[in-house]
Simulated scan of single mutants.
Amino acid sequence: MAAVPEGYYESTNPFLVHGPRGFEEFKLLESFGMYVRMDFPGVPEECVRVSLDPAKKSLAVYADAPKVHRYDLAQRKYLSVIETVCRCCVFDRFTYQMSDGVLRLHLSKSNIDPSHSSCIEFKYSAFGEDISGNDMDESYESKQLEDGNLYVRLDMPGVPKDNFTVSVANGKVNVTGQAPALDHDSGSRLYSSDVVILSGPVDFPIHRVKTIIKNGVIRLLIPPV
């Protein structure tokens, strides 16, 4: 039984087969507003903090993804920053909602310099690391356990708990997830991948695979065959 090599992504989840690419999405709204979607797989709503700096020129999003299973490599921490790059505007209001490992942010700007027309210029920065400071842009991790089981974690942000499907066929374990388009998302997202190759072209009842699904992350315990 072999795990698929670990997935690394700087801009797009490797399991995404259809839908908007990238772990963030920006859209300008009416009334000088902005919509931002940010993927924070594994982060529950209570572990998100959004802060506007006193000058109202930048907004920071802090998010923590706790270890859910004892075999998780580490806690993950995220930081995203949105900044205005002009002198004429400031951020004045924001609201957000967190669900299934995705944060959706509504942000508005106001003009503080009447001599200039309102602009739409901004800069975005994103960082991800584990609690020790190691890079954590990995969407997949696996661990062979002493009892013969294989532990696998996959990030599929935006997928509700009941939209995951796990199947075993022809010696492969496949995970598929459908993330619906919410709010101002430009479209739904479909994830799918064969995440484990078994030792032979065997099938076994799916109930033998234990799953933990939480905050856009699915964890599998796959028995030996």
Rank of each mutant, 00 (worst) to 15 (best):
Y96A: 08
D113N: 11
I112H: 03
N111M: 04
M98N: 08
N111W: 00
R104W: 09
T95N: 14
Q97S: 09
E121T: 13
L107C: 03
Y96T: 07
H116T: 06
Q97R: 14
V90T: 09
D100Q: 11
L105H: 08
Q97F: 09
V90W: 00
S117K: 10
F91S: 06
K109E: 09
Q97P: 01
L105W: 09
S108I: 08
F91Q: 07
D92A: 02
S115P: 00
F122T: 04
C119W: 00
D100E: 11
D92I: 01
I120R: 13
S108W: 11
S117C: 06
L107M: 03
L107Q: 02
C119Y: 00
Y96R: 12
H106L: 15
M98F: 04
G101A: 06
Q97E: 10
D113W: 01
E121N: 13
S118F: 01
V90P: 04
L103N: 06
S99W: 05
S118M: 11
S117G: 10
Y96E: 03
N111S: 07
K109D: 08
P114H: 00
F91D: 03
C119S: 09
D113I: 00
N111Q: 06
H106V: 12
Y96P: 09
C89V: 02
F122R: 14
D92T: 05
S115E: 03
L103T: 09
S117A: 08
F122Q: 12
C89A: 07
L103W: 03
M98I: 14
Y96W: 12
K109L: 11
E121R: 15
C89Q: 08
L107Y: 01
S118I: 14
H106Q: 14
I112T: 04
L107I: 06
M98E: 10
I120A: 14
F122W: 09
V90H: 02
L107P: 03
S108V: 10
L103Y: 01
P114S: 04
H116Y: 06
D92N: 12
S99P: 02
Q97A: 09
S108M: 07
F91T: 03
I120N: 14
D113A: 08
E121D: 15
G101T: 04
E121W: 15
V102S: 08
L103A: 13
S99K: 13
L105Y: 05
S118K: 07
